[in-house]
């Protein structure tokens, strides 16, 4: 064991609270459902059955069936799988990029920082769905392009959070100490400062997940996101809209899934924030 007590010793242990527990349970459930959905679903997601068109929710079909007699639960699981995959990849890419850019600009400052932040603020002031539309209109539709578009679009928000944290930390006493001891800059940035900003960064990650889920389902709802045969909750909703009167459950279950999934992440974010305040 290394005796590096400068950073780890100071890291606040995340304590559980009601928000965090509820959030983790909800999110965990849906992530699990989505991951299962990638490999296995109770029924085939494409098998049509004329006799079972618009079957109301029952024990055989927990969420009922759609206009082609397909099992909605299976399709929700599959769509959730797509959403989880898009969310994870987008947050991974934009979070990492945002962390590196934010750390460098926030720690070193100077003219480069000034220029990057001006551009960053300008990009940040545009609603993410608009930026995503621009990128998708250039790259074209499909899940791969949605992931690329959202990864680019969400970088600025991560940069802003990380940068302001690094600026706050860079002149702290323990950093000055480390510097005097001859610790390299890279090590200071990622071994000494990073653990201290982790909880703030995690809040940004939960917000990132929320936005990624909402943006992906929004784009798919508009018909310019994830394309069939890939299942998507947003696309299901737009299909279901035409049958609202006949089969309200067709719209309710995919929609509710998005809402609860997003709510789960919000609760986790809220929980971490309440922890920090104390």
């Amino acid at each position: 064991m290394k005796t590096d007590n400068t950073a780890k010793g100071r890291t606040k242990r995340i304590r559980m609270n009601g928000y965090l527990t509820a959030g983790l349970i909800i999110t965990g459930f849906f992530v699990l459902l989505g991951i299962i959905g990638m490999f296995w679903t109770p029924y085939s997601t494409t098998a049509m059955s004329a006799s079972e068109k618009f079957a109301a929710p029952s024990l055989a079909h927990l969420m009922g069936t759609d206009n082609f007699g397909r099992d909605i639960l299976s399709r929700v699981m599959k769509g959730l799988g797509t959403t989880v995959m898009v969310g994870v990849l987008v947050v991974l890419v934009s979070g990492t990029a945002g962390l590196v850019i934010g750390a460098l600009t926030g720690y070193f400052g100077g003219i480069v920082d000034e220029v990057i932040m001006r551009i960053n603020d300008a990009l940040n002031s545009f609603p993410s769905i608009l930026m995503a539309l621009v990128v998708v209109s250039i790259l074209g539709t499909g899940s791969r392009n949605v992931i690329i578009a959202l990864s680019i679009v969400f970088i600025p928000s991560f940069v802003r959070v990380v940068r302001s944290e690094y600026m706050r930390c860079r002149n702290a006493d323990y950093i000055t100490n480390a510097r005097l001891m001859g610790v390299s800059r890279i090590r200071i940035m990622f071994v000494h400062i990073l653990p201290n900003i982790m909880s703030t960064f995690l809040v940004a990650v939960t917000v990132g997940f929320n936005n990624a889920i909402l943006a992906e389902s929004g784009l798919s709802y508009l018909g310019i996101g994830v394309q069939p045969p890939d299942a998507s909750l947003g696309k299901m909703l737009s299909d279901a809209q035409g049958y609202l009167f006949k089969a309200p459950w067709y719209a309710v279950f995919p929609g509710l899934t998005i809402v609860l999934f997003v709510l789960g992440f919000s609760l986790i974010g809220e929980g971490i924030q309440r922890n920090n305040r104390r």
Partner: peptide
């Protein structure tokens, strides 16, 4: 309020239509 913020506008729109 937390719940209202979690509802995507298109789903809320569908609920309102319904």
């Amino acid at each position: 309020t937390q719940g209202a913020m979690a509802v995507p506008s298109f789903f809320l729109g569908i609920l309102i239509i319904f």
